[in-house]
Nucleic acid binder design. Structure first.
Length: 477
RNA sequence: GUCCCCAUCGUCUAGCCUGGCCCAGGACACUGCCCUUUCACGGCAGCGACGGGGGUUCAAAUCCCCCUGGGGACGCCA
Protein backbone atom coordinates (compact mmCIF):
# COMPACT_ATOMS: atom_id res chain seq x y z
CA UNK A 1 0.00 0.00 0.00
CA UNK A 2 1.38 3.36 -0.86
CA UNK A 3 -0.44 5.35 1.77
CA UNK A 4 2.47 6.20 3.99
CA UNK A 5 0.42 6.82 7.07
CA UNK A 6 -2.77 5.47 8.60
CA UNK A 7 -5.40 8.17 8.32
CA UNK A 8 -9.01 7.41 9.10
CA UNK A 9 -12.07 9.52 9.42
CA UNK A 10 -15.65 9.61 10.46
CA UNK A 11 -18.02 11.62 8.38
CA UNK A 12 -21.15 12.41 10.36
CA UNK A 13 -23.99 14.25 8.77
CA UNK A 14 -25.44 17.06 10.87
CA UNK A 15 -29.07 16.16 10.39
CA UNK A 16 -30.18 15.49 13.93
CA UNK A 17 -29.21 14.07 17.28
CA UNK A 18 -25.71 12.74 17.75
CA UNK A 19 -26.19 9.08 16.96
CA UNK A 20 -24.93 6.07 18.85
CA UNK A 21 -23.98 4.55 15.49
CA UNK A 22 -21.69 7.50 14.90
CA UNK A 23 -20.02 6.83 18.23
CA UNK A 24 -19.67 3.15 17.33
CA UNK A 25 -17.93 3.84 14.04
CA UNK A 26 -15.93 6.62 15.66
CA UNK A 27 -14.64 4.29 18.37
CA UNK A 28 -13.37 1.70 15.91
CA UNK A 29 -11.77 4.33 13.72
CA UNK A 30 -10.23 6.04 16.70
CA UNK A 31 -8.82 2.84 18.12
CA UNK A 32 -7.46 1.80 14.74
CA UNK A 33 -5.78 5.17 14.25
CA UNK A 34 -4.21 5.17 17.72
CA UNK A 35 -3.08 1.59 17.35
CA UNK A 36 -1.13 2.47 14.24
CA UNK A 37 0.05 5.88 15.34
CA UNK A 38 -2.10 7.42 12.65
CA UNK A 39 -4.56 10.26 12.43
CA UNK A 40 -8.23 10.33 13.31
CA UNK A 41 -10.21 12.96 11.47
CA UNK A 42 -13.73 14.31 11.68
CA UNK A 43 -15.29 15.64 8.53
CA UNK A 44 -18.77 17.07 8.58
CA UNK A 45 -20.83 15.95 5.61
CA UNK A 46 -23.36 18.72 5.35
CA UNK A 47 -24.12 18.62 1.66
CA UNK A 48 -27.83 18.09 2.06
CA UNK A 49 -29.27 21.52 2.48
CA UNK A 50 -32.79 20.23 3.00
CA UNK A 51 -31.89 18.17 6.04
CA UNK A 52 -29.21 20.38 7.51
CA UNK A 53 -29.71 21.38 11.16
CA UNK A 54 -27.48 24.10 12.46
CA UNK A 55 -27.24 22.87 16.04
CA UNK A 56 -26.46 19.33 15.04
CA UNK A 57 -22.77 19.72 14.33
CA UNK A 58 -22.12 21.21 17.75
CA UNK A 59 -24.03 18.45 19.45
CA UNK A 60 -22.15 15.76 17.56
CA UNK A 61 -18.76 17.21 18.42
CA UNK A 62 -19.86 17.79 21.99
CA UNK A 63 -21.02 14.21 22.40
CA UNK A 64 -17.84 12.79 20.92
CA UNK A 65 -15.84 14.95 23.30
CA UNK A 66 -17.98 13.71 26.14
CA UNK A 67 -17.02 10.20 25.16
CA UNK A 68 -13.39 11.20 25.24
CA UNK A 69 -12.65 10.42 21.61
CA UNK A 70 -10.22 13.08 20.49
CA UNK A 71 -9.55 13.91 16.88
CA UNK A 72 -6.45 15.23 15.21
CA UNK A 73 -8.18 17.18 12.49
CA UNK A 74 -11.71 18.47 12.27
CA UNK A 75 -13.95 21.48 11.70
CA UNK A 76 -13.22 22.92 15.14
CA UNK A 77 -9.49 22.23 15.35
CA UNK A 78 -8.55 22.59 11.72
CA UNK A 79 -5.69 20.69 10.13
CA UNK A 80 -3.56 20.57 7.05
CA UNK A 81 -6.25 19.27 4.74
CA UNK A 82 -9.16 21.56 5.57
CA UNK A 83 -11.72 22.81 5.46
CA UNK A 84 -13.36 19.90 7.24
CA UNK A 85 -16.90 20.92 6.53
CA UNK A 86 -18.04 19.83 3.10
CA UNK A 87 -20.28 22.81 2.56
CA UNK A 88 -17.08 24.86 2.56
CA UNK A 89 -15.58 22.68 -0.14
CA UNK A 90 -18.21 23.20 -2.81
CA UNK A 91 -15.86 24.74 -5.36
CA UNK A 92 -13.49 21.82 -4.95
CA UNK A 93 -16.23 19.27 -5.55
CA UNK A 94 -17.70 21.18 -8.47
CA UNK A 95 -14.28 21.47 -10.03
CA UNK A 96 -13.67 17.74 -9.85
CA UNK A 97 -17.14 16.97 -11.13
CA UNK A 98 -16.59 19.14 -14.18
CA UNK A 99 -13.18 17.61 -14.66
CA UNK A 100 -14.91 14.25 -15.10
CA UNK A 101 -17.39 15.76 -17.54
CA UNK A 102 -14.51 17.05 -19.62
CA UNK A 103 -12.64 13.78 -19.49
CA UNK A 104 -15.78 11.99 -20.65
CA UNK A 105 -16.29 10.04 -17.43
CA UNK A 106 -19.41 11.97 -16.51
CA UNK A 107 -22.21 13.83 -18.19
CA UNK A 108 -24.83 16.45 -17.56
CA UNK A 109 -28.33 15.18 -16.97
CA UNK A 110 -31.31 17.46 -17.42
CA UNK A 111 -34.01 15.07 -16.27
CA UNK A 112 -36.45 16.62 -13.83
CA UNK A 113 -37.19 15.03 -10.47
CA UNK A 114 -40.75 14.57 -11.71
CA UNK A 115 -39.62 12.55 -14.70
CA UNK A 116 -37.38 10.40 -12.53
CA UNK A 117 -40.24 9.78 -10.15
CA UNK A 118 -42.50 8.59 -12.96
CA UNK A 119 -39.70 6.42 -14.28
CA UNK A 120 -39.21 4.78 -10.89
CA UNK A 121 -42.90 4.16 -10.49
CA UNK A 122 -43.00 2.38 -13.83
CA UNK A 123 -39.95 0.33 -12.98
CA UNK A 124 -41.48 -0.65 -9.69
CA UNK A 125 -44.76 -1.56 -11.32
CA UNK A 126 -42.88 -3.74 -13.76
CA UNK A 127 -41.13 -5.41 -10.84
CA UNK A 128 -37.72 -4.16 -11.86
CA UNK A 129 -34.91 -2.68 -9.82
CA UNK A 130 -35.19 1.06 -9.90
CA UNK A 131 -32.40 2.98 -11.51
CA UNK A 132 -31.71 5.81 -13.87
CA UNK A 133 -32.54 4.92 -17.48
CA UNK A 134 -29.59 6.94 -18.81
CA UNK A 135 -31.85 9.14 -20.83
CA UNK A 136 -29.30 11.96 -20.94
CA UNK A 137 -26.22 9.82 -21.29
CA UNK A 138 -26.33 9.92 -25.05
CA UNK A 139 -27.10 13.62 -25.39
CA UNK A 140 -25.18 15.25 -28.22
CA UNK A 141 -23.10 18.37 -27.73
CA UNK A 142 -25.71 20.47 -29.50
CA UNK A 143 -28.53 19.05 -27.38
CA UNK A 144 -26.57 19.76 -24.24
CA UNK A 145 -25.74 23.24 -25.45
CA UNK A 146 -29.42 23.87 -26.16
CA UNK A 147 -30.40 22.86 -22.63
CA UNK A 148 -27.67 25.05 -21.24
CA UNK A 149 -28.68 28.14 -23.22
CA UNK A 150 -32.29 27.51 -22.22
CA UNK A 151 -31.07 27.77 -18.65
CA UNK A 152 -32.20 24.26 -17.70
CA UNK A 153 -30.82 23.02 -14.43
CA UNK A 154 -28.79 19.87 -14.51
CA UNK A 155 -27.02 17.32 -12.39
CA UNK A 156 -23.76 15.62 -13.21
CA UNK A 157 -23.85 11.85 -13.42
CA UNK A 158 -21.00 9.38 -13.52
CA UNK A 159 -20.88 7.26 -16.68
CA UNK A 160 -20.75 3.73 -15.32
CA UNK A 161 -19.36 0.92 -17.43
CA UNK A 162 -22.10 -1.31 -18.81
CA UNK A 163 -20.11 -4.51 -18.86
CA UNK A 164 -17.75 -6.40 -16.65
CA UNK A 165 -17.71 -6.34 -12.89
CA UNK A 166 -16.19 -4.26 -10.20
CA UNK A 167 -14.40 -5.98 -7.37
CA UNK A 168 -13.06 -4.54 -4.18
CA UNK A 169 -11.43 -6.08 -1.16
CA UNK A 170 -13.19 -5.50 2.08
CA UNK A 171 -10.69 -5.70 4.90
CA UNK A 172 -12.87 -8.08 6.88
CA UNK A 173 -15.15 -9.64 4.31
CA UNK A 174 -12.73 -10.35 1.52
CA UNK A 175 -13.58 -9.80 -2.12
CA UNK A 176 -16.95 -8.29 -2.90
CA UNK A 177 -17.97 -8.02 -6.50
CA UNK A 178 -20.89 -6.66 -8.41
CA UNK A 179 -21.82 -6.60 -12.08
CA UNK A 180 -21.23 -3.18 -13.53
CA UNK A 181 -24.45 -3.48 -15.46
CA UNK A 182 -26.42 -3.00 -12.28
CA UNK A 183 -24.63 0.05 -11.03
CA UNK A 184 -26.61 3.22 -11.53
CA UNK A 185 -25.22 6.31 -13.24
CA UNK A 186 -24.74 7.99 -9.92
CA UNK A 187 -25.47 11.67 -9.46
CA UNK A 188 -22.25 13.40 -8.46
CA UNK A 189 -23.32 17.01 -8.43
CA UNK A 190 -26.83 18.08 -7.54
CA UNK A 191 -28.69 20.83 -9.33
CA UNK A 192 -28.12 23.15 -6.37
CA UNK A 193 -24.40 22.85 -6.96
CA UNK A 194 -23.76 20.70 -3.92
CA UNK A 195 -22.03 17.37 -4.36
CA UNK A 196 -23.70 14.13 -3.38
CA UNK A 197 -22.19 11.96 -0.70
CA UNK A 198 -20.51 9.79 -3.29
CA UNK A 199 -18.54 12.55 -4.96
CA UNK A 200 -17.73 14.57 -1.89
CA UNK A 201 -16.70 11.47 -0.02
CA UNK A 202 -14.32 10.18 -2.64
CA UNK A 203 -12.83 13.55 -3.44
CA UNK A 204 -12.34 14.48 0.18
CA UNK A 205 -11.02 11.09 1.21
CA UNK A 206 -8.47 11.36 -1.55
CA UNK A 207 -7.51 14.95 -0.81
CA UNK A 208 -7.31 14.21 2.90
CA UNK A 209 -5.16 11.15 2.22
CA UNK A 210 -7.51 8.77 3.98
CA UNK A 211 -5.90 5.32 3.98
CA UNK A 212 -8.68 3.22 5.49
CA UNK A 213 -12.36 3.81 5.12
CA UNK A 214 -14.07 2.20 8.10
CA UNK A 215 -17.77 2.82 7.89
CA UNK A 216 -21.06 1.06 8.41
CA UNK A 217 -22.20 -1.95 6.43
CA UNK A 218 -24.98 -0.01 4.74
CA UNK A 219 -22.32 1.41 2.44
CA UNK A 220 -21.23 -1.87 0.94
CA UNK A 221 -23.60 -1.64 -1.99
CA UNK A 222 -22.37 1.76 -3.03
CA UNK A 223 -18.70 1.00 -2.60
CA UNK A 224 -18.31 -0.21 -6.20
CA UNK A 225 -19.53 3.22 -7.29
CA UNK A 226 -16.85 4.77 -5.18
CA UNK A 227 -14.21 2.46 -6.57
CA UNK A 228 -15.26 3.36 -10.10
CA UNK A 229 -15.05 7.01 -9.14
CA UNK A 230 -11.52 6.61 -7.85
CA UNK A 231 -10.65 4.89 -11.09
CA UNK A 232 -12.22 7.63 -13.17
CA UNK A 233 -10.01 10.11 -11.38
CA UNK A 234 -7.03 7.81 -11.58
CA UNK A 235 -6.62 7.83 -7.83
CA UNK A 236 -5.47 5.13 -5.51
CA UNK A 237 -8.29 3.33 -3.75
CA UNK A 238 -8.16 3.22 0.06
CA UNK A 239 -8.78 0.07 2.06
CA UNK A 240 -12.45 -0.42 2.82
CA UNK A 241 -13.65 -1.99 6.02
CA UNK A 242 -17.36 -2.24 6.60
CA UNK A 243 -18.49 -2.51 10.18
CA UNK A 244 -21.65 -4.38 11.14
CA UNK A 245 -24.77 -2.35 11.70
CA UNK A 246 -26.11 -1.92 15.22
CA UNK A 247 -29.61 -3.37 15.46
CA UNK A 248 -32.91 -2.82 17.21
CA UNK A 249 -34.22 -5.71 19.30
CA UNK A 250 -36.16 -6.85 16.21
CA UNK A 251 -32.88 -6.98 14.27
CA UNK A 252 -33.64 -4.13 11.95
CA UNK A 253 -31.08 -1.34 11.57
CA UNK A 254 -31.00 0.66 14.78
CA UNK A 255 -33.48 3.51 14.76
CA UNK A 256 -34.76 6.11 17.15
CA UNK A 257 -38.30 4.82 16.91
CA UNK A 258 -37.41 1.43 18.31
CA UNK A 259 -34.42 2.08 20.53
CA UNK A 260 -32.88 5.21 22.01
CA UNK A 261 -30.14 6.23 19.59
CA UNK A 262 -29.15 9.65 20.81
CA UNK A 263 -25.87 9.93 22.65
CA UNK A 264 -27.49 12.70 24.62
CA UNK A 265 -30.06 10.22 25.89
CA UNK A 266 -27.34 8.00 27.28
CA UNK A 267 -25.56 10.96 28.77
CA UNK A 268 -28.74 12.27 30.37
CA UNK A 269 -29.73 8.88 31.69
CA UNK A 270 -26.44 8.54 33.53
CA UNK A 271 -24.50 6.11 31.44
CA UNK A 272 -20.82 6.88 31.95
CA UNK A 273 -18.88 7.72 28.81
CA UNK A 274 -16.37 4.95 29.38
CA UNK A 275 -19.24 2.52 29.96
CA UNK A 276 -20.71 3.35 26.60
CA UNK A 277 -17.35 3.05 24.88
CA UNK A 278 -16.67 -0.29 26.57
CA UNK A 279 -20.12 -1.50 25.60
CA UNK A 280 -19.70 -0.39 22.01
CA UNK A 281 -16.37 -2.17 21.97
CA UNK A 282 -18.24 -5.35 22.83
CA UNK A 283 -20.46 -4.97 19.78
CA UNK A 284 -18.94 -7.12 17.08
CA UNK A 285 -15.60 -7.32 18.79
CA UNK A 286 -14.28 -9.00 21.86
CA UNK A 287 -11.23 -8.41 23.98
CA UNK A 288 -10.48 -12.09 24.40
CA UNK A 289 -9.58 -14.18 27.45
CA UNK A 290 -13.18 -13.79 28.61
CA UNK A 291 -12.48 -10.20 29.56
CA UNK A 292 -15.51 -7.97 29.19
CA UNK A 293 -14.50 -4.88 31.05
CA UNK A 294 -11.76 -2.91 29.38
CA UNK A 295 -10.71 0.64 28.68
CA UNK A 296 -10.20 2.25 25.32
CA UNK A 297 -6.45 2.21 25.98
CA UNK A 298 -6.60 -1.54 26.51
CA UNK A 299 -8.73 -1.93 23.43
CA UNK A 300 -6.12 -0.09 21.40
CA UNK A 301 -3.50 -2.64 22.43
CA UNK A 302 -5.51 -5.60 21.26
CA UNK A 303 -7.59 -4.27 18.43
CA UNK A 304 -7.50 -5.82 15.00
CA UNK A 305 -10.39 -5.28 12.61
CA UNK A 306 -9.83 -8.77 11.26
CA UNK A 307 -11.44 -10.12 14.39
CA UNK A 308 -14.66 -8.23 14.03
CA UNK A 309 -17.66 -10.54 14.18
CA UNK A 310 -19.91 -9.65 11.27
CA UNK A 311 -23.32 -10.55 12.60
CA UNK A 312 -25.21 -7.33 13.36
CA UNK A 313 -25.33 -6.96 17.14
CA UNK A 314 -28.50 -5.97 18.92
CA UNK A 315 -28.00 -2.93 21.09
CA UNK A 316 -29.27 -4.44 24.32
CA UNK A 317 -29.86 -2.06 27.19
CA UNK A 318 -29.66 -4.62 29.96
CA UNK A 319 -26.02 -5.49 29.49
CA UNK A 320 -25.25 -1.81 29.16
CA UNK A 321 -26.87 -1.27 32.54
CA UNK A 322 -24.87 -4.06 34.10
CA UNK A 323 -21.65 -2.63 32.73
CA UNK A 324 -22.47 0.83 34.02
CA UNK A 325 -23.18 -0.65 37.43
CA UNK A 326 -19.77 -2.31 37.38
CA UNK A 327 -18.09 1.02 36.71
CA UNK A 328 -20.14 2.79 39.32
CA UNK A 329 -19.11 0.25 41.92
CA UNK A 330 -15.49 0.55 40.97
CA UNK A 331 -15.45 4.33 41.09
CA UNK A 332 -13.63 6.24 43.80
CA UNK A 333 -15.54 8.59 46.10
CA UNK A 334 -14.33 11.59 44.18
CA UNK A 335 -15.23 10.07 40.86
CA UNK A 336 -18.69 9.23 42.07
CA UNK A 337 -19.24 12.77 43.32
CA UNK A 338 -18.22 14.21 40.00
CA UNK A 339 -20.37 11.77 38.05
CA UNK A 340 -23.48 12.83 39.92
CA UNK A 341 -22.56 16.48 40.06
CA UNK A 342 -21.44 16.87 36.45
CA UNK A 343 -23.59 14.45 34.57
CA UNK A 344 -26.83 14.35 36.53
CA UNK A 345 -27.14 17.58 38.50
CA UNK A 346 -25.08 19.73 36.22
CA UNK A 347 -25.24 23.51 36.67
CA UNK A 348 -26.69 23.79 33.16
CA UNK A 349 -29.68 21.66 34.02
CA UNK A 350 -30.22 23.26 37.40
CA UNK A 351 -30.21 26.72 35.88
CA UNK A 352 -32.81 25.68 33.35
CA UNK A 353 -34.90 24.31 36.17
CA UNK A 354 -34.67 27.28 38.47
CA UNK A 355 -37.43 29.41 36.95
CA UNK A 356 -39.73 26.41 36.73
CA UNK A 357 -39.36 25.06 40.23
CA UNK A 358 -38.61 28.01 42.47
CA UNK A 359 -42.14 29.23 42.99
CA UNK A 360 -43.31 25.71 43.67
CA UNK A 361 -41.12 24.81 46.62
CA UNK A 362 -40.51 26.53 49.90
CA UNK A 363 -37.84 24.42 51.45
CA UNK A 364 -35.17 23.05 49.14
CA UNK A 365 -35.82 19.63 50.58
CA UNK A 366 -38.85 19.39 48.33
CA UNK A 367 -36.82 19.83 45.19
CA UNK A 368 -35.73 16.26 44.66
CA UNK A 369 -39.06 14.61 45.21
CA UNK A 370 -41.17 17.10 43.29
CA UNK A 371 -38.87 17.25 40.32
CA UNK A 372 -37.63 13.71 40.04
CA UNK A 373 -39.14 13.37 36.56
CA UNK A 374 -36.59 15.84 35.20
CA UNK A 375 -33.90 13.32 36.07
CA UNK A 376 -35.65 10.00 35.66
CA UNK A 377 -35.91 7.99 32.49
CA UNK A 378 -38.97 5.77 32.55
CA UNK A 379 -41.86 6.78 34.78
CA UNK A 380 -44.61 4.65 36.25
CA UNK A 381 -48.23 5.33 35.51
CA UNK A 382 -51.55 4.75 37.09
CA UNK A 383 -53.85 3.82 34.26
CA UNK A 384 -56.99 5.07 35.95
CA UNK A 385 -55.71 8.63 36.25
CA UNK A 386 -53.80 8.64 32.99
CA UNK A 387 -56.77 7.85 30.76
CA UNK A 388 -59.34 10.67 30.48
CA UNK A 389 -63.04 9.94 30.78
CA UNK A 390 -64.53 8.91 27.45
CA UNK A 391 -61.08 7.75 26.27
CA UNK A 392 -59.47 4.35 26.34
CA UNK A 393 -55.99 3.06 27.02
CA UNK A 394 -55.68 2.38 23.33
CA UNK A 395 -56.54 6.01 22.60
CA UNK A 396 -53.80 7.24 24.89
CA UNK A 397 -51.25 4.85 23.44
CA UNK A 398 -52.06 5.86 19.92
CA UNK A 399 -51.90 9.55 20.77
CA UNK A 400 -48.52 9.05 22.41
CA UNK A 401 -47.17 7.27 19.35
CA UNK A 402 -48.53 9.87 16.99
CA UNK A 403 -47.11 12.66 19.10
CA UNK A 404 -43.71 10.99 19.13
CA UNK A 405 -43.79 11.08 15.34
CA UNK A 406 -44.83 14.71 15.37
CA UNK A 407 -42.08 15.69 17.78
CA UNK A 408 -39.46 13.84 15.76
CA UNK A 409 -40.14 16.44 13.10
CA UNK A 410 -39.75 19.39 15.43
CA UNK A 411 -36.22 20.49 14.76
CA UNK A 412 -36.03 23.46 17.05
CA UNK A 413 -36.69 22.12 20.50
CA UNK A 414 -37.97 25.31 22.07
CA UNK A 415 -41.20 26.54 23.60
CA UNK A 416 -42.45 28.27 20.53
CA UNK A 417 -42.06 25.34 18.16
CA UNK A 418 -43.25 22.80 20.68
CA UNK A 419 -46.38 24.76 21.42
CA UNK A 420 -47.18 25.05 17.74
CA UNK A 421 -46.62 21.34 17.23
CA UNK A 422 -48.79 20.36 20.19
CA UNK A 423 -51.62 22.70 19.23
CA UNK A 424 -51.64 21.44 15.68
CA UNK A 425 -51.55 17.84 16.78
CA UNK A 426 -54.31 18.32 19.35
CA UNK A 427 -56.58 19.93 16.79
CA UNK A 428 -55.82 17.23 14.27
CA UNK A 429 -56.96 14.50 16.61
CA UNK A 430 -59.79 16.56 18.05
CA UNK A 431 -59.09 16.11 21.74
CA UNK A 432 -60.30 18.70 24.23
CA UNK A 433 -57.42 20.86 25.46
CA UNK A 434 -58.02 19.79 29.03
CA UNK A 435 -57.87 16.05 28.24
CA UNK A 436 -54.99 16.39 25.83
CA UNK A 437 -52.69 18.48 27.95
CA UNK A 438 -53.41 16.66 31.19
CA UNK A 439 -52.78 13.30 29.57
CA UNK A 440 -49.57 14.60 28.12
CA UNK A 441 -48.54 16.08 31.43
CA UNK A 442 -49.10 12.76 33.13
CA UNK A 443 -47.20 10.82 30.50
CA UNK A 444 -44.25 13.16 30.45
CA UNK A 445 -43.98 14.23 34.06
CA UNK A 446 -45.84 11.48 35.84
CA UNK A 447 -47.74 13.95 38.00
CA UNK A 448 -50.53 16.49 37.89
CA UNK A 449 -48.76 19.17 39.88
CA UNK A 450 -45.77 19.69 37.60
CA UNK A 451 -44.47 23.02 36.26
CA UNK A 452 -45.85 24.42 32.98
CA UNK A 453 -45.92 21.66 30.42
CA UNK A 454 -44.21 23.18 27.40
CA UNK A 455 -41.36 24.62 29.45
CA UNK A 456 -40.96 21.30 31.19
CA UNK A 457 -40.76 19.43 27.90
CA UNK A 458 -38.03 21.78 26.78
CA UNK A 459 -35.94 20.82 29.81
CA UNK A 460 -36.82 17.13 29.78
CA UNK A 461 -35.37 17.18 26.32
CA UNK A 462 -36.08 15.54 23.04
CA UNK A 463 -34.49 12.23 23.92
CA UNK A 464 -36.26 11.51 27.17
CA UNK A 465 -39.54 12.87 25.83
CA UNK A 466 -39.33 10.49 22.91
CA UNK A 467 -38.37 7.67 25.21
CA UNK A 468 -41.39 8.19 27.49
CA UNK A 469 -43.76 8.48 24.57
CA UNK A 470 -42.38 5.46 22.78
CA UNK A 471 -42.13 3.22 25.79
CA UNK A 472 -45.67 3.95 26.99
CA UNK A 473 -47.28 0.95 25.25
CA UNK A 474 -45.05 -1.49 27.15
CA UNK A 475 -45.70 0.24 30.45
CA UNK A 476 -49.46 0.12 30.03
CA UNK A 477 -49.62 -3.52 29.03
C1' G B 1 -38.74 -7.97 -6.53
C1' U B 2 -33.31 -7.55 -7.80
C1' C B 3 -28.40 -7.35 -6.02
C1' C B 4 -25.07 -7.45 -1.86
C1' C B 5 -23.74 -8.87 3.22
C1' C B 6 -24.44 -12.11 7.31
C1' A B 7 -25.72 -16.82 10.22
C1' U B 8 -22.89 -20.42 17.68
C1' C B 9 -27.41 -20.06 23.97
C1' G B 10 -33.33 -15.13 24.31
C1' U B 11 -28.98 -11.22 23.97
C1' C B 12 -23.36 -9.92 23.46
C1' U B 13 -19.69 -13.26 22.15
C1' A B 14 -15.09 -17.28 22.31
C1' G B 15 -13.94 -21.21 19.10
C1' C B 16 -13.94 -21.11 12.61
C1' C B 17 -8.68 -18.61 8.95
C1' U B 18 -4.34 -22.98 10.64
C1' G B 19 -10.60 -29.55 10.96
C1' G B 20 -9.51 -33.68 16.24
C1' C B 21 -8.05 -30.49 22.78
C1' C B 22 -15.82 -28.53 21.78
C1' C B 23 -21.41 -34.16 23.55
C1' A B 24 -19.05 -26.04 22.40
C1' G B 25 -16.22 -21.65 26.91
C1' G B 26 -17.42 -16.71 29.12
C1' A B 27 -20.83 -12.56 30.01
C1' C B 28 -25.94 -10.25 30.22
C1' A B 29 -30.87 -11.67 31.18
C1' C B 30 -33.80 -15.42 33.62
C1' U B 31 -34.56 -19.33 37.74
C1' G B 32 -33.01 -21.49 42.46
C1' C B 33 -29.87 -21.52 46.77
C1' C B 34 -26.37 -18.90 50.09
C1' C B 35 -25.07 -14.13 52.41
C1' U B 36 -28.47 -10.51 54.44
C1' U B 37 -33.62 -6.95 59.26
C1' U B 38 -35.23 -4.95 53.34
C1' C B 39 -33.37 -3.96 48.57
C1' A B 40 -29.05 -4.15 45.99
C1' C B 41 -24.07 -6.05 45.71
C1' G B 42 -21.42 -10.58 46.11
C1' G B 43 -20.97 -16.14 45.96
C1' C B 44 -22.75 -20.88 44.14
C1' A B 45 -25.86 -23.75 40.99
C1' G B 46 -29.29 -24.23 36.98
C1' C B 47 -31.61 -23.15 32.24
C1' G B 48 -29.84 -22.38 27.44
C1' A B 49 -26.88 -22.51 20.95
C1' C B 50 -23.35 -24.75 16.45
C1' G B 51 -30.70 -22.94 11.33
C1' G B 52 -31.63 -27.37 7.70
C1' G B 53 -29.78 -30.67 3.94
C1' G B 54 -25.95 -32.50 1.09
C1' G B 55 -20.81 -33.22 0.31
C1' U B 56 -15.03 -33.44 1.48
C1' U B 57 -12.48 -36.20 5.52
C1' C B 58 -10.54 -41.48 9.63
C1' A B 59 -12.67 -36.93 11.96
C1' A B 60 -16.59 -30.68 10.80
C1' A B 61 -19.23 -25.61 14.88
C1' U B 62 -14.78 -25.27 11.97
C1' C B 63 -13.69 -26.49 4.60
C1' C B 64 -17.28 -26.63 -0.04
C1' C B 65 -22.37 -26.46 -2.23
C1' C B 66 -27.66 -25.81 -1.93
C1' C B 67 -31.82 -24.31 0.90
C1' U B 68 -33.79 -21.46 4.74
C1' G B 69 -33.61 -17.34 7.79
C1' G B 70 -32.07 -12.28 9.04
C1' G B 71 -30.22 -7.63 7.44
C1' G B 72 -28.78 -3.85 4.02
C1' A B 73 -28.92 -1.27 -0.63
C1' C B 74 -31.74 0.02 -4.81
C1' G B 75 -32.78 8.89 -3.79
C1' C B 76 -30.56 15.49 -6.99
C1' C B 77 -30.30 11.39 1.86
C1' A B 78 -26.08 10.37 4.08
Amino acid sequence: MSFDRVRVRIAPSPTGDPHVGTAYVALFNYVFARKHGGDFIIRIEDTDQTRYRGSSEDMILRSLKWLGLSWDEGPDVGGAYGPYRQSERREIHAKYAMQLVESGHAYRCFCTPARLEVMRQEQKAAGKTTGYDRHCRGLSQTETAAHLTAGDTFVVRLKMPTEGKTVFQDYVRGAIEIDNGRIDDQVLLKSDGYPTYHLANVVDDHLMKISHVMRAEEWITSTPKHVLLYQAFGWEVPTFCHLPLLRNPDRSKISKRKNPTSLRYYERSGILPHTLLNFLGLMGWSFGDNVEIFSVAEMIERFDPKHIHLGGPIFDQSKLNWLNNQYLQKSTDDEFVSYIRDQMFSPEILKLLKPLVCERIDRMEQFVDKNAFFFNGALTYDQATLVPKEKTVADVISVAGALADVLDDVYDWDGEHLKAALDTHREAIGWKPKDYFMTLRLILTGRKDSPPLIESIVVIGREVTRFRLRSLPQLLK
